[in-house]
């Protein structure tokens, strides 16, 4: 297993009190595997991703019972060790390409800096790698681009540069946090195709955070569904789409016209609001919006196995629920 995370918790102090952004999240990724994390806005996906790389805001507190990358324990790792991993074996692509690059340095400088931070090679080798990767991510006249500044590029091109940057040191795992949400729809499709293709050809492990169930159905090997800070369902992609167990997952898939072939679109909306993460909720977080909610749902609900490599955080998964499509009121 390349990455193994067990019982990850993240607390961020805020004016209103401690915000439990991530609660007891567990998942793992193997070499070459694609894990998709889906969930509504604010459910803790980005915070989960950032905590993997040790990039949380300084005030945030992270704890986990287990967190390993390629067997190395990431909890006890020194800053130096984690830095040696970042951008080298474990890379990240962010949501907002317009601001992700330093406005005062050329693209070449920023790309080669990554290489130089981890490899003993010289700038020339770094430059060649940068040119190769820029071409690889579909940027024409790559050598000339190296001298350009971020503001001279469109958002789509900048995101390609960021992807190239993440690939500079041939990482084994890439965390992509909604890499295309900020871009035009046509560019989104192109970039996602590119990412999927790169992932396959380079044998990368990938954690793709997205709202887009269509994308998930196409690229995911495994899917983690998050809701209000918790994992509420975790299964192989095929299993999840064919046999969703949690009422929330079912509601999500149910509002897509054809669950096995959903189109590219943002996460469907479900009536009701997400509970605040500031007050820790005792029972099921989905209770207020769930069609099956009952008194038993007021106690903490554990993740339980509901099939082969399939867990869900609901006490009524065994009971035959109504047809998935009809759960969405």
């Amino acid at each position: 297993m390349l990455l193994n995370v067990q019982n990850l918790n993240v607390m961020i102090p805020t004016q209103g009190g401690p915000l439990h952004a991530v609660q007891d999240v567990s998942f793992s990724v193997s070499k070459g595997e694609t894990l998709c994390i889906v969930g509504e806005s604010g459910c803790g996906k980005s915070v989960t991703a950032l905590s993997l790389l040790g990039l949380l805001p300084k005030s945030a507190k992270r704890s986990a019972s287990r967190m390993t990358f390629d067997g190395q324990d990431m909890i006890t790792m020194s800053d130096k060790q984690i830095r040696a991993l970042r951008g080298n074996r474990l890379s990240m692509i962010f949501q907002e390409p317009m601001t992700a690059l330093n406005p005062l340095h050329t693209l070449g400088r920023q790309l080669t800096d990554v290489y130089m931070a981890h490899r003993r090679g010289n700038r020339e080798a770094a430059r060649q790698r940068a040119v190769y990767l820029l071409e690889r991510v579909g940027i024409a006249k790559a050598a000339e681009r190296l001298g350009q500044y971020p503001h001279e590029l469109s958002g789509g091109l900048r995101q390609r540069v960021v992807i190239a940057m993440a690939l500079m040191c041939e990482p084994e795992l890439i965390v992509a946090d909604e890499p295309t949400t900020a871009l035009d729809v046509t560019i989104q499709a192109e970039l996602l195709r590119l990412l999927a293709e790169l992932q396959k050809s380079m044998g990368l492990g990938m954690i793709m955070i997205t709202h887009d169930l269509g994308l998930v159905s196409r690229i995911a090997d495994r899917v983690v569904v998050m809701y209000a800070g918790q994992v509420i369902e975790n299964a192989l992609a095929k299993e999840l789409f064919e046999n969703p167990k949690h009422p929330y997952t079912r509601a999500l898939l149910g509002s897509v016209p054809d669950p096995s072939h959903p189109r590219m679109q943002p996460l469907p909306s479900i009536p009701g609001t997400v509970p605040s993460l500031v007050q820790k909720m005792e029972g099921c977080h989905f209770r207020d919006r769930c069609a099956f909610a009952s008194e038993e749902c007021r106690v903490p609900i554990p993740l339980v196995g509901v099939g082969a490599e399939h867990v869900a955080r609901c006490i009524k998964t065994g009971a035959q629920a109504p047809n998935a499509r009809s759960t969405a009121p």
């Binding site: 080298n88 890379s91 962010f94 992700a100 990554v114 931070a117 960021v162």
Partner: peptide, 9 residues
Amino acid sequence: RTARAMGLS
């Protein structure tokens, strides 16, 4: 954040 994510010193 990007620079840090890329492991720059």
